[in-house]
Design a binder for these strands. Structure first.
Lengths: 205, 205, 205, 205
DNA sequence: GATGAATGAGCTTTCATTCAT
DNA sequence: AATGAATGAAAGCTCATTCAT
């Protein structure tokens, strides 16, 4: 009953409310954290009644998880654009690296939300597999995991545990974005390129 | 009167209470986060009365800051052990990289606490400069920042903004430790070594 | 949003809760003082939940100030009834003196509440000017202050500082009411009359 | 065992501590009220340990009552100075009126403390009889009550209930002093005199 | 479906009092 | 006798959640 897919909503109005709540939740949580974002405030920001929230989500936790899912969906759609099928492994990893970089830089609220999410009890489990193993193509190998795996198999990439290769990938990326978000640095195109190169140097054989 | 240095306590008992509270706070916050750790729970875990906490710390915030200071102090002491003065830049950066890796692996609660701390209003500002610029030697240049700077000047390290070089350092490191802490991988000595090498490959000219 | 005028409440029920809380607060504070009246006790006496109080008043202080305002409003309305416009100064001062006497005798809780209020940080400043200078007519001179002033100007009343004349007025009045409230004396109509006469003897030229 | 008369204290030091506590309590309570004066603060102000307070007074209430007794004792001693035995009733009432006025003006902390005290649960009962009926001479009739009574009997003073006559006395007096304490007026000798005259006009036949 | 007033458990913090030293 | 560290009950206030309208 709760949190059904938007397809089942007979009225456009209902879907709008759900979307408003999701967007309000993400904005406020990114800005103030989970505990600085009471449901009443989220509802107010969304322009709906306090009780309405509970028609769309079982409870606050479910709302947060739904926000995460929604952000992730948009992120994945973003990464599928212009995917360089058939090109070199490095090229394809680059697509992911620069793509994520750009998405986070263009969507700082989403970045901050995900940061909050993954460092909370909500996201401990999900952390790993989401970005890591999300397929782009239907081949199933066009995931970051798949690319790293293939690179290792081909001897292009260092023979390190996949988890560690991914740690290098996601760690460098998120640390850099955080610095950008905090205003410590301006991650313009040139720096994005050089950061991706540095990452490649880290993992290449 | 609050939070005085332990040196002034004539009896071990008095200091023990403060220490118990600090340890309890770190443990619970690492486990449940700031908001999952009510002061009553911290006091109970420490084996003291609910009001006792406020004899040692002005309020919950002060307690959290004190835990951070205490952890940081131990971390810095740890990093000063066997510092390879006079050796190559790579050797000295390695000392920091492996040293932090080991500290966090040996002290998972401290690692999780710091993670919570730096992603909270408490630590946003402190994040960067603490580990980054903490001097080991009295020369003042024996900081991670100083070493990276010197490496860039000597043409050994890529000419990237310091902030970005540090992002590569701390990002790879914390991501790897998090995976270890979550049990996704066992960061034994060999892997630590190879991770440090990968980091070096990322930043070396 | 807090403490809005009752005019905006479409239903009697909503207003009743606010009124219940105000009445409960006044009763308990009159009986036990500010610090003998926890918000939980006020809520219980009002028959509402502990949190409900905070829907109507920002905090305990706001509630107390609102009680004061409400009592004062009723007192002023009471004093405006049958005001002897155009009659002698003595007659008009009498109206105030006897009017206040009667109001306090008829409303002992209000009297005790005001006593608590004016002897607290809330009311130190307000003490003087409220009753003293509250106009009855639109002429602006029909305040106790105005009447005393005019009486002095006309040579009917002793040429003492207004503040002192008012001290005689309010001091005698409240002391007498307090004795009545405490049961030391029964301030029936005859005594009220004779006390007003005594006050007049005190200030008349 | 608690709160013994100072005569029983073998050491001067002990008496000093009791006095310090009494003085500290009065000062802080006058300044901050009962609830703004924690026992820890009183002890600190008195320069003694927090527990020491409980060697001299059973609890905080007993301390407050003791402060009241002490202030009252000093007030009575003050009123006995230069008592005009044998002079007219008006002269003797004047002695009390001006004497109290002066004491309160000279001892604003004592005045504020008594104000707090009498408007609290502590002093409701005591209010009436203390100042009212405290004998100065050993004749027993040299109390304010006695003088008023005698004045009524002789036909000099209005035939009003004694309680009411006293209300006129104490009400005018305390109201005027409060205005002085709050800085609304300067109760210099001339005004004291004229206020006493006004009071006399109020009660004289 | 939508609302928002109402709730009360749970939070952080204070402070009168005790008691081992 | 004197201390002050320790206590825990009780305070004011917040907020996720419910439910009558």
């Amino acid at each position: 009953m709760h949190d059904t897919s938007p397809a089942s909503a007979p009225l456009a109005g209902a879907t709008d409310k759900r979307t408003s709540i999701l967007r309000a939740a993400m904005t406020l949580i990114a800005r103030n954290g989970f505990h600085g974002s009471p449901t009443a405030m989220i509802a107010a920001e969304a322009g709906v009644g306090a009780g309405t929230l509970y028609r769309y989500f079982a409870d606050k936790d479910a709302l947060i998880v739904a926000v995460h899912r929604e952000v992730e969906t948009r992120l994945n759609e973003w990464l599928q654009k212009d995917y360089p099928f058939g090109q070199s492994i490095r090229r394809r990893l680059d697509h992911y690296f620069i793509g994520l970089l750009r998405f986070f830089i263009d969507h700082p609220l989403e970045f901050k939300f995900l940061g909050q999410f993954y460092d909370s009890p909500y996201g401990v489990e999900l952390r790993r597999d989401k970005i890591f193993s999300k397929p782009v193509g239907d081949a199933g190998c066009e995931t970051i995991r798949g690319l790293l795996e293939q690179g290792v198999a081909e001897g292009i990439i260092k023979d390190l545990p996949l988890v560690l290769l991914f740690a290098l990938f996601i760690g460098a990326l998120t640390s850099a974005v955080r610095d950008h978000t905090h205003g410590f640095i301006d991650l313009h195109d040139g720096l994005q390129r050089r950061l991706a190169d540095a990452f490649w140097d880290a993992i290449r054989q």
